[in-house]
């Protein structure tokens, strides 16, 4: 019954990558926005003074596929700013079944609400598309939040953007066919990855969409027959991005616009003041 063995065999890195030698290091200059810290849109949108409260305390880690960055119902210890890749926020049911409720890439942050005080995560954050992230301890991030209104505002805006994504997903699940949702999901994943190739198994896709693998196989084949994607074992190539956008529901465009507005609006305001 391979359908029921969800997410077994996953390596948890999360906290452990902080202590891994050679991976985590702090940039030398505190105010300088080092090359290493670039990639995350929220960090890039911060004014230098606010950025200086965070960047010196950042550490860096690769995001390995399947790694769990935060676990549901446990305290958030690190705040992650993805620089590439995509992380799914999944709800874990008592049966062990997991379903994605939102996805976060370099336009967002994971665990930011812990900046307002100790916080237990509501969802499990699991890496779907590998990449890299900058992270800061929740305690350090709380200090930055206390010192800067702008960073506090950023936390609240991100929470609102996430809520908006979850609302859109709820409506999408209630109205749109799975084929359109699959197309939408692939586009999200593509935004977080470097090229046009997604290292994804159909099992992973099935878990994320909360569907049977048999179903996802047929849907992926229909997208392939339409010349939009090409799939092999554990890898999907997007051949026709514009076509995939046509096949996706409107929710892809809505979520992307709103998420990007958080960063852009923020940037505009920071520059104005």
């Amino acid at each position: 019954m391979n359908e029921d063995k969800r997410m077994s065999g996953i390596v948890t890195i999360g906290r452990s990558c902080e202590s891994a030698p050679g991976i985590a290091r702090t940039p030398a200059a505190s105010t300088e926005f080092s090359q290493q810290a670039r990639g995350n849109r929220l960090l890039e949108a911060l004014a230098p003074a606010d950025r200086a409260l965070i960047v010196p305390h950042l550490k860096y880690c690769p995001l390995l596929q399947g790694a769990i960055l935060q676990e549901s119902e446990t305290p958030v210890e690190q705040v992650y700013f993805p620089q590439s890749g995509m992380i799914s926020l999944v709800v874990v049911m008592r049966t062990g079944e997991v379903v994605e409720t939102a996805a976060v890439g370099r336009e967002g942050v994971i665990g930011a609400f812990a900046g307002l005080g100790r916080w237990n995560a509501f969802t499990r954050a699991i890496v779907q598309v590998p990449g890299s992230a900058a992270f800061i301890s929740a305690a350090r991030f709380q200090q930055a939040v206390r010192q800067s209104e702008k960073i506090t505002e950023l936390v609240l805006r991100c929470k609102e953007a996430l809520l908006s994504q979850v609302q859109q997903t709820a409506a999408c699940n209630a109205l749109h066919p799975l084929e359109a949702r699959l197309a939408r999901w692939l586009l999200h994943a593509l935004d977080g990855s470097e090229g046009a190739t997604l290292p994804l198994t159909q099992d992973a896709l099935a878990h994320m969409l909360g569907a049977r693998r048999t179903t996802v196989t047929f849907l992926a084949r229909r997208l392939q027959d339409a010349g939009l994607i090409r799939y092999r074992r554990a890898r999907i190539d997007v051949v026709d991005r514009a076509g995939l956008e046509q096949a996706a529901c409107e929710c892809y465009e809505t979520v992307r616009r709103r998420t990007y507005e958080v960063g852009e609006d923020k940037a505009a305001r920071v520059l104005d003041v």
């Binding site: 109205l175 749109h176 066919p177 799975l178 049977r212 048999t214 179903t215 047929f218 849907l219």
Partner: peptide, 14 residues
Amino acid sequence: AHARRVAQELMQHR
């Protein structure tokens, strides 16, 4: 049961 679920997932909302 599996066939029923797969059919329902494929046809949902269309």
